[in-house]
Design a protein around this nucleic acid. Sequence first.
DNA 1: CTTGACCCTCACGTCAGGTCAGGGTGTACG
DNA 2: CGTACACCCTGACCTGACGTGAGGGTCAAG
Lengths: 242, 242
Amino acid sequence: MKTKEVAEMAGVSVRTLHHYDSIGLLVPVRLPSGYRSYSDSDIQLLQQILFFRELGFSLDHIKDIVHDSSYDVTDALLYQRKLMEEEKNRVMVMIRKLDETIEDRKGERVMSNQDKFQGIDFSHNPYEQEARENWGDAVVNESNRKMSGFDNEELKEKWERIFRELGAVKDQDPRSEEAQKRIGELYHFLNSHFGTYSPEAFRSLGEMYVSDERFTENIDQYGEGLSLFLRDGMAEWSWNHK
Amino acid sequence: MKTKEVAEMAGVSVRTLHHYDSIGLLVPVRLPSGYRSYSDSDIQLLQQILFFRELGFSLDHIKDIVHDSSYDVTDALLYQRKLMEEEKNRVMVMIRKLDETIEDRKGERVMSNQDKFQGIDFSHNPYEQEARENWGDAVVNESNRKMSGFDNEELKEKWERIFRELGAVKDQDPRSEEAQKRIGELYHFLNSHFGTYSPEAFRSLGEMYVSDERFTENIDQYGEGLSLFLRDGMAEWSWNHK
DNA sequence: CTTGACCCTCACGTCAGGTCAGGGTGTACG
DNA sequence: CGTACACCCTGACCTGACGTGAGGGTCAAG
């Protein structure tokens, strides 16, 4: 039989047969043309080789097994079983670690969402001084609200409720009565829990919701484009309440 | 930090760090001398890399994960979990096939009996602890083979056959091909039935065959001077297979 | 000024083939 | 007889994650 016929019969590639020839694992006779010619016993040998290959043996090991009659096949099988058992353990350890890591990240993701609720911590940010100058203390206070008691569950809930409600009206005109009412709630909420905001500081805060992407990301969690809506609505609100 | 310091700290080889440098995974700055200099953040990055490596990620994949912040790590973890699950199944299929094959071969075996060999029982021996320290667990496991299933007739038979064959070649050069082949059989036999022997442990075992007269007496049952032959032959074998 | 411990860069080896490139063989058809 | 096409061959480089060694430079201690 010629190479390709054997390959198709056995379900291996021609290259594989070449390889087995070159390492002396399965060496067919050659025709005058140089073509490989596989005999029936070569085919049988190949079946054996592929059998052991399926069991995970290395070609080197297979060579010993099939060409050395003194080799104890049962020993080889038991040895191979041990190797495979170790491999299984190795992989199962990885899977366990992966599961643990995935679980951990689930937990952290909740926390990092909480972090987002709790705002951006400017306290170690080199831009804090500049922010205070540009936007007034109120803005930075909000950023640092985590430090000023925002980890209180009740506050978080209120914060979320307010932003969800704002998200629900974000596609209306920011100057509409409904929108302005919600924005007023935000103003009073901030004034109750995060220091004193002048209407002008409130307007500045709205600018920052758009110009600083850390705020933008945070706010747009409650609805795409909410930060833009808020900037305009807060500007309107401060205009009406100055 | 210099290369070797980092390597020792992290428990990897210097070559590994060179490799990570060359593939752009962890590229330290260079001192004027050309020496690599790892910064603290390099060390942190290395820890991350090794963490993902333990989870079975490829270095290519790790590179994406640690150098591309837009990469979703949770997705990567889930993907990797799938890969590892497949790998586990692959290995478990092999183990099942191995077990089936081993069972089949057991059925075919003809059992005759003839026993002489008495293992040395270290299990109540005050020197066991010392022996474990001096020679490694492998030696003591062999000594205790009686306890670990050696009372199985089949195993005893195999053991005897191997030693009779060794006795038959004991007057040849222990380095001869014939001798080395027989010694290889012994190695595989021990590895299949009595725990895991490194080639080095195998060499130590050979030393013990000579230095501990309980072994010597036992082994020389199969031929005067066999223990000496084995010591030399096993040393040679371990040298060629380390 | 030498030793010895460290550093560097090639560069080849591992394992089981995959994937070309370049060139020869065999046979059916016109 | 020529040619198209299927098949054959060898040789050589590629993969992954390093191990191993050669050949040569750097640095601090004695």
